[in-house]
Amino acid sequence: MNPIKQISFTLILVLTSLSISAAINVYQFDDPVKKERFYNLIDELRCTVCQNQTIAASNAGLAKDLRNKTYKMIQAGKTDDEIKTFMVERFTDFVLYNPPVNNSTLLLWIGPAVLMLIAFIFLISNIRKRVSTPVTEIDAQEHERVQTLLKQKKDGNND
């Protein structure tokens, strides 16, 4: 990449990708429950045009529009699911920071627990096996070798 091109490339990146001023929007609610739902929702919806920000955190135009849309839908009495469906229909599951459980996300959701289970089964069987094997001679040999290696430390340890 030639230098000038690189400069303009970096420049574009800086201008488009960073929304570094806090997105602060004043929304009025009469109902504290609605207010809480609103803030929870915009914290879980992804600003599709941003680098990796929620629509709550971003100052991008689209994030503002989607915040306003969410606000209007909440005020109009829509449920959280209806609002999420509305967003998913337009922007796919990509807008949800909390991915839904379905066939393609099954591994994501149960993978960690399965892994944990396998690891523990492996651990327990391994320890059982270990308990039943007799002590090998390696232990003694190695002990001696290690002691020689660490000897000077012992020498100095007479304080």
């Binding site: 914290d43 807008v95 920071y97 996300t105 994501l108």
Partner: peptide, 16 residues
């Protein structure tokens, strides 16, 4: 991974 398998785009974020 999902993208590589052609299974669409998702986001995994804070709640997960």
């Amino acid at each position: 991974v999902l993208d590589a398998m052609g299974a669409g785009k998702i986001s995994v974020g804070m709640p997960y």
